[in-house]
Design a protein around this nucleic acid. Structure first.
Lengths: 214, 214
DNA sequence: GTCTATAGCTGGATAGAC
DNA sequence: GTCTATCCAGCTATAGAC
């Protein structure tokens, strides 16, 4: 099918892993200096190359941030898409939120890049952004399994979940003061959205699904 | 009581208003350029002075941030301390959270400075920080009026409230997509904390108050 | 592709005249 | 207190040899 020679593939592969090595160095740097503290000098030094060499792989500093965003969004999507096995709807929701929280708290700089728009002058390209929306569609699926499809309730859920994660990262880094509230808060939330629910099956959907996933 | 001459008072007043003018210029700048985009050159230009003159009022750039923090924290404390008139406990809570959200969303840069620890290399001095904790004590009072005093519930409440505000600022600036959920979310929260409550009075406190306010 | 060298700019902060 | 002039450090990005 392809007429690309083995040599070209090989070079492409090398180029790719060199790019990845730079991105890896970038992540380790922002973990220490903060997301905004990324300088191309330090980055080059840590990657074992010089500043101009960085420019042979990335057009600009923002292109580096964009590659970091794309990598993070892809990992995020994969993590959210992992199957749950045989769990009932509420357990799916709780486990999913735990996953989300674990993903976020394990690397605050990554969380800041992905979910807080706080980097001056940077916004991700549509290609980099795409996996992130895909991942959020999964979250909607978790809610839908609990019969929760109203936009108002989805918004309330995003506020609750991001609030827990945000407080955890900002005020108890490394601990579990807020993440341990996940189960209780999800029970509260589901009980609020399904006031008359008796059994945890899908019998009493509040709104008909249109074209939503799951 | 004081032996300070009128002249000295006058000069002190002038010095003070000059400081205030610089801080005002700083707020208008960060509203446009973002909190991290504050440069002393631009600040001086906007304040109608030159860079060295800024240094005759503030020792460093961080001292300017600290003065901004102090001013914001003081305004915050005053806003939170305003009386509520004759409201029942739940109305007090809802009104208080609305106040908090209104304060936060009306100036995102101020919110970022006060509540998100995102400025590289800056942390407020204890003096500047003091009014902020005072204000949070008021919030505890709103909760206590609803019989909510458990640390776990207070944490859940802070996550919920900051999550709503955060989503509002990040994803619907200028709108009300999340702030309009305040009443519903507070009802959900209070119902969860007071599962057996029948009437909205203070009859069924869950935990005895120790030395808490109100 | 990788280097040395450096351009070009902006930042915070200071010296010293007035 | 306010200015002009300037220092020095850091940054992104590029030119050009190899």
């Amino acid at each position: 099918m392809s007429n690309i020679s083995k040599t070209t593939d090989w070079r492409e592969g090398r180029r790719r892993s060199a790019r990845d090595a730079i991105i890896d160095a970038a992540w380790s740097l922002v973990a220490e200096e903060g997301l905004a503290g990324l300088s191309l000098r330090d980055l080059a030094r840590r990657a074992g190359i010089t500043t101009p060499t960085v420019y042979s792989y990335f057009d600009s500093k923002n292109a580096i941030y964009d590659a970091m965003f794309a990598q993070a969004a892809t990992k995020f999507a994969k993590r959210m898409a992992e199957p749950f096995g045989d769990l009932d709807p509420l357990e799916v929701l709780v486990t999913g939120v735990r996953r989300f929280a674990s993903f976020c708290t394990s690397d605050p700089a990554r969380y800041q890049l992905l979910f807080q728009q706080t980097l001056p002058g940077f916004e991700p390209s549509p290609e980099s952004y795409a996996p992130a929306v895909e991942a959020l569609a999964h979250a909607r699926g978790w809610l839908a399994r609990n019969g929760i499809t109203k936009a108002r309730h989805v918004d309330l859920w995003t506020a609750l979940v991001t609030g827990l994660v945000d407080q955890q990262i900002s005020n108890d880094a490394g601990g579990s003061r807020w993440t341990r509230l996940i189960e209780e808060s999800m029970a509260m939330f589901v009980a609020h959205c399904q006031p008359s629910r008796v059994s945890p099956n899908r019998s009493s959907r509040q709104t008909p699904r249109k074209g939503s996933l799951l």
